[in-house]
Simulated assay, not measured.
Amino acid sequence: MSAAEHITRVRRLYKLIFRVHRALPAELRVMGDNYAREEFKRHKKCNPEEARIFLNEWTDYAINLAKQMKPLQQAKRKEVGKYIDPQLLDHMTDDQIVQLYELHKAATLEDSDDTIKDQTIEKK
């Protein structure tokens, strides 16, 4: 793959991710957009093998999220995402595990904030 083709592929994927994120609830959209933006910046100068893996994983993410965001799927289930395969953790670096934990903390903090807000509204 030439450099121009690679750049075009990365840009298309980047734009696709942000388009798919539009269907997410507002708080998840902001978190997803920020995370994707940071990850793409972080991998801007990675080696070709890492770039291949990076693009494959983000492509899978975009496809899975797009499937979950279809109106018919949303009517069936009100949840977004899926659990990570525990075996994948064995292949992650310490930095990646810390990053995953930080993302988990941010997501669960927002969920608990929403629950608190919902309970407060119900009491009024």
Rank of each mutant, 00 (worst) to 15 (best):
M1S: 15
A3E: 14
A3N: 11
A4E: 15
E5V: 10
H6P: 05
H6L: 13
I7Y: 09
R9L: 11
R9Q: 09
R11Y: 12
R11I: 13
R12G: 14
R12M: 14
R12T: 10
Y14C: 01
K15H: 10
K15V: 12
L16M: 06
I17W: 03
I17D: 03
F18T: 03
F18A: 03
R19C: 13
R19Y: 09
H21N: 05
R22E: 07
R22S: 09
R22H: 07
L24N: 02
L24S: 01
P25K: 00
P25F: 00
P25R: 00
A26V: 11
L28A: 06
L28K: 03
L28T: 03
L28R: 02
L28Y: 03
R29S: 05
R29F: 09
V30Q: 12
M31I: 12
G32H: 01
Y35Q: 05
A36Q: 01
A36G: 03
R37A: 13
E38F: 07
E38Y: 08
E39I: 10
F40R: 00
F40N: 01
F40P: 04
K41Y: 13
K44W: 08
K44L: 08
C46L: 04
N47T: 11
N47I: 10
P48Q: 02
E49P: 15
E50G: 02
E50W: 02
E50S: 05
I53S: 04
I53K: 04
F54C: 05
F54H: 02
F54N: 01
F54I: 06
L55P: 11
N56W: 10
N56Y: 12
W58K: 04
T59D: 04
D60A: 14
D60T: 13
Y61N: 12
Y61H: 07
I63H: 03
N64C: 01
L65C: 02
L65W: 04
A66T: 08
A66S: 14
K67G: 13
Q68T: 07
K70Q: 12
K70S: 08
P71M: 00
P71L: 00
L72I: 12
L72D: 12
Q73N: 10
Q73M: 05
Q73T: 12
Q74D: 09
Q74N: 06
A75Q: 11
K76Y: 10
R77Q: 10
R77E: 13
K78M: 15
G81T: 00
K82N: 15
I84A: 11
I84G: 13
I84M: 11
D85M: 05
P86R: 02
P86G: 03
P86I: 08
Q87S: 13
L88S: 15
L88G: 15
L89S: 00
H91D: 11
H91R: 15
M92D: 01
T93R: 02
D95R: 01
Q96T: 04
Q96K: 01
Q96M: 02
I97D: 06
I97E: 08
L100M: 05
L100R: 03
Y101P: 08
L103N: 07
L103R: 07
H104S: 09
K105Y: 13
A106R: 03
A106K: 04
A106Q: 02
T108W: 08
E110H: 06
S112N: 11
D113P: 08
D113M: 13
D114I: 12
D114L: 15
I116S: 01
Q119V: 04
Q119I: 08
T120A: 14
T120N: 05
I121C: 02
I121G: 06
E122M: 12
E122G: 10
E122C: 04
E122Y: 09
K123Y: 10
K124I: 06
K124Q: 15
